[in-house]
Nucleic acid binder design. Sequence first.
DNA 1: TGCATAGTTCAAATTGTTTTGAACGAACCG
DNA 2: CGGTTCGTTCAAAACAATTTGAACTATGCA
Lengths: 198, 198
Amino acid sequence: MVPSTDGSEKGPARRATLWASEAIVSDMVGRLIEFWGFKRNMGRVWAVLYLSPEPLTAQELRAVLRLSSGAVSMILNDLSRWGVVRKVWIQGDRRDHFAAEVQLWRMISRVLSEREKTEIVVFMEACEEAMRSLESKMTAQDARERAKAQLQLERIKALLELARLGKKLLDGLLSTAKLDAEPLTRFLLGGVRRASSL
Amino acid sequence: MVPSTDGSEKGPARRATLWASEAIVSDMVGRLIEFWGFKRNMGRVWAVLYLSPEPLTAQELRAVLRLSSGAVSMILNDLSRWGVVRKVWIQGDRRDHFAAEVQLWRMISRVLSEREKTEIVVFMEACEEAMRSLESKMTAQDARERAKAQLQLERIKALLELARLGKKLLDGLLSTAKLDAEPLTRFLLGGVRRASSL
DNA sequence: TGCATAGTTCAAATTGTTTTGAACGAACCG
DNA sequence: CGGTTCGTTCAAAACAATTTGAACTATGCA
């Protein structure tokens, strides 16, 4: 065993309890993240890493969050694929260590962009397909049907418009985010103030 | 039975099939809404109502979406409580009829504001509580502990800052939305363009 | 009042999601 | 090599969310 230079143990994980701050934040992030459609434990694992001064091993996470080895492995994989956690190699230790992405805005923008790529685009494509499927109905014999088709066309157009708006907003946030977090803050606060006074 | 003035049936629901456009949109809205953390069928019911020229009865919804009476009742309740569907009284018909809120932005802003009231506020309160719980650790004997507490304090402060930013953005969107949808559109598009060119 | 239909509620069933833990493969070390 | 630990996978189990359908209440109408 390599002697610990910093008081943390290398063997079977010790200190299997969290500070109150860690418990509160990891639970809260867990709930928020679940609300956002991810697994609760993804949020909890990220939060524990985020509040840790050093990268942690799967074992340590397993101990503090009382999860099975399989769960930790899968969750760390998920988090890596979302780019919100990364592996850190620590010399002299065979085990993988994990660190949280601490640049919150980078992290969020990565997730948002991943999602918009799928969700909003799928939404818009579906709208377009639905609109195409209405074309034939526009020449129906029944006037009532034609009117209905017309109404649906307009309403779906409104949905599409909304989706476009959402996409623009997201794209804007993301492109700003790529440059720096601080300008983003000013942009948002400035923009909001302008808007409220409109 | 009151004679139908418009060809729609009053008795046991007829026409238990959806147009392709209705099927596509209701499925798609269902998925999107599920992704957003609601029940899929809330989205499907709303979408069917949104694409319908007239308000529909629970029975009709039940027939086209193949749901049980209980489910329709509960879903319409949910939707009413979220303010995205309203009851419409049609004279001479004992049954409740339901119409979708068609002002998309009003609908979304109502939902967002409902959510932010809970989610973001809870998040911020948890951050504050966690920070308070760290105060005692700041004077620990162990220098290592003090450093860790200091780090956590800063990281939690960053989370709080992010939450504030999100809240400001939401508040701004919502306050703009209350006035009108069109200015909002211009605000967003204008704002985004400014941002990307920064 | 009594019948018929509309609407609600809730326990049980269904469906969907997440976690577990044992089995396996890979890497390191003596 | 063989032993040990690390990490992954996956079928089964546990858990969570949603839906069903039958029982019930309420309302309109004759």
